[in-house]
């Protein structure tokens, strides 16, 4: 039974293909890692008020992730959320699938050029401040699939990455270590400025 579709599949495919080709052309250089807090850019003489330190504490312990599980690493991420390794105790109980409600993008798994377009779109839809954690070697460099015609050789070609977690897949403890590093980074943003 043929149904009249309210859209043209070939038109949508053509538009998607054009977006992918455009993104491939624009992603030749990696984004620099956001490490300005290390360089001392924030070393200003600002006295940290109680409110600011409270806000820091809240920001650090309530980062809401958007789990961007793409492939195998996603199941170690789910394992980290499950009861044995329990990411909830780090304040990440709420995993929001809507980018408007999340501030941490946890990319777990191989990124292909076809998926890079939605990933960039979702990253752009997240509100500042936002962070990105690259989980697994596939997001760091393409991993086992480096050299393939359809795999992005590194997440930092598409979005700036804050924490890289190596492993194939990293154990849930590895993910937790990465998350604690991220929390330190989130809080240190203001901590450096205190001096």
């Amino acid at each position: 039974m043929e149904v009249e579709r309210p859209y043209s599949a070939s038109e949508l495919d053509r538009i998607e293909g054009a977006e992918i080709q455009a993104l491939m052309a624009a992603s030749k250089e990696p984004y620099p890692d956001p490490v300005d807090w290390l360089e001392g850019e924030g070393r200003r003489n600002v006295i940290l008020t109680t409110t600011e330190s409270l806000v820091d504490w809240c920001k650090r312990y309530s980062t809401w992730p958007i789990p961007f599980g793409l492939a195998c690493c996603a199941f170690e991420m789910v394992g980290a959320f499950a009861s044995r390794f329990d990411l909830t105790r780090f304040g990440m109980d709420v995993f929001r699938f809507s980018p408007r409600q999340a501030d941490l993008m946890l990319v777990a798994g191989t990124l292909t050029w076809k998926m890079a377009v939605p990933l960039r779109r979702i990253y752009d839809q997240m509100a500042e401040p936002k962070w990105v954690v690259a989980m697994g070697t596939c997001t760091i460099s393409g991993g086992a699939f480096r050299g393939s015609y359809s795999v992005v050789p590194g997440l930092n070609l598409i979005v700036p990455v804050d924490v890289y977690i190596p492993g194939c897949p990293p154990r849930p403890e590895g993910l937790i270590h990465g998350i604690t590093l991220l929390h330190a980074k989130v809080a240190r943003d203001k901590l450096i400025k205190k001096e």
Partner: peptide, 9 residues
């Protein structure tokens, strides 16, 4: 039509 790769590959 193409199934895994994108239109324009």
């Amino acid at each position: 039509k193409r199934i895994f790769l994108w239109d324009g590959f």
